[in-house]
């Protein structure tokens, strides 16, 4: 019994590697220098997903609240680490700040979705909680990386204006308010774009997965709507939290712009 899923055999799985060979061939032809990365990425995809498959099998079977909570904390930490690494404008940003922002926004939104909207039995059912939190994290990670990078980029490029505002007696918040706005907007733009084109240009992965596994398309759509909205909420919250926690780090205790982001390092 496979609930409508058409199983993929080992041979069929191996055949999918040929798709990467097409991409690799183009890369080699144009000398893009991406062949090694493509091959390494393919190996990692196989290893990581197979490994996760085993873990999920164990977690789903155990269905224990504490194991699920522990897994979510680990996922948040990995997401926080990955997001601060994607910020070229922000050297040595502390992972802990990103971690707390991601954890808070993910848990808040994820809890509302799982406990109130979907409400499975038991409410912490691993089959629901893990995919939901995973989708939130995947999107929050990109959002906060974009926000953080934009915040530092904006403050650096507008340092003269910020210092001028400070010189008039602005508080640090008044001085960077516009930069914060831009940063949050930047983090949310991909999510808003995906809300605009979903179903028209793209069929989201979760919905596609459900349809492939034999679910009724109407049910899959309902789930996808919940997922899209929860992602929007989590990304907004995560960006706002992280940017809110971050802007103060750019100022000295005296409320002056730190030398590393100031226009005048004199």
């Amino acid at each position: 019994m496979n609930n409508g899923i058409i199983p993929i055999s080992d041979v069929q799985l191996a055949l999918s590697v040929s798709l990467v060979l097409v991409a690799g061939g183009i890369s080699a032809l144009l000398r893009l220098g991406l062949l090694n990365s493509l091959l390494w990425g393919t190996v990692r995809t196989f290893v990581q997903l197979t490994f996760v498959g085993y873990i999920l099998k164990y977690v789903f079977a155990a269905n224990n609240l504490w194991i699920i909570a522990g897994l979510i904390v680990v996922m948040c930490f990995i997401a926080a680490r990955a997001s601060v690494k994607r910020t070229p404008n922000v050297p040595n940003y502390p992972v802990t700040l990103a971690f707390w922002s991601i954890l808070a926004s993910t848990v808040l939104v994820g809890f509302v979705v799982v406990r109130i909207i979907i409400n499975p039995e038991p409410w912490y059912s691993a089959r629901i909680v893990i995919p939901v939190f995973g989708m939130i994290l995947g999107n929050s990670m990109n959002g906060i990386a974009l926000s953080l990078d934009r915040l530092y980029g904006e403050v650096r490029s507008r340092a003269d204006e910020i210092e001028s505002l400070l010189a008039f007696g602005a508080t640090p918040w008044e001085a960077v308010r516009d930069c914060v706005r831009e940063a949050v907007r930047s983090g949310m733009t991909p999510t808003i774009n995906s809300l605009m084109v979903v179903g028209l240009v793209s069929l989201p992965g979760m919905m596609t997965g459900q349809i492939l596994s034999g679910a009724d398309p109407h049910e899959a759509v309902r789930y996808q709507i919940v997922v899209m909205l929860m992602i929007a909420a989590a990304v907004a919250l995560g960006c706002l939290l992280l940017v809110g926690l971050s802007y103060k780090r750019m100022f000295t205790p005296d409320g002056a712009l730190k030398a590393e982001v100031s226009s005048s390092k004199k």
Binding site: D160, E161, E163, S164, L166, A167, F168, G169, A170, T171, G255, S264
Partner: peptide, 15 residues
Amino acid sequence: VEWRRKVHYMSQKPV
């Protein structure tokens, strides 16, 4: 903030 409100710096490059 009080100090900068009273002692105002105007930079060489007008902002």
